[in-house]
């Protein structure tokens, strides 16, 4: 639904960087790995939170 606030594994706050990551790597055409490096999301556990996430609010909203 929404990006989890923290990484499931290590507890680092990842949601802080989601909107920038989404704008640059998902909607933009930058390399996701480079964007994550720049944002300071270093560990593989935190990176998978961002790479594997899908926003679902738009999908669920009509059924409210």
């Amino acid at each position: 639904m929404m990006i989890p606030v923290r990484c499931f594994t290590c507890g680092n706050v990842v949601a802080e960087h989601w909107e920038e990551f989404k704008a640059r790597a998902r909607e933009g055409d930058e390399d996701p790995a480079e964007v994550l490096d720049e944002l300071g999301v270093e560990r593989a556990c935190c990176r998978r939170m961002m790479v594997s996430h899908k926003d679902l609010v738009d999908v669920v909203a009509p059924y409210q």
């Binding site: 706050v13 960087h17 989601w18």
Partner: peptide
Amino acid sequence: PADENIPIIELKEGQ
């Protein structure tokens, strides 16, 4: 809040 850009929830029209 230590970080200010954490999205809590996206609200649609009327929510």
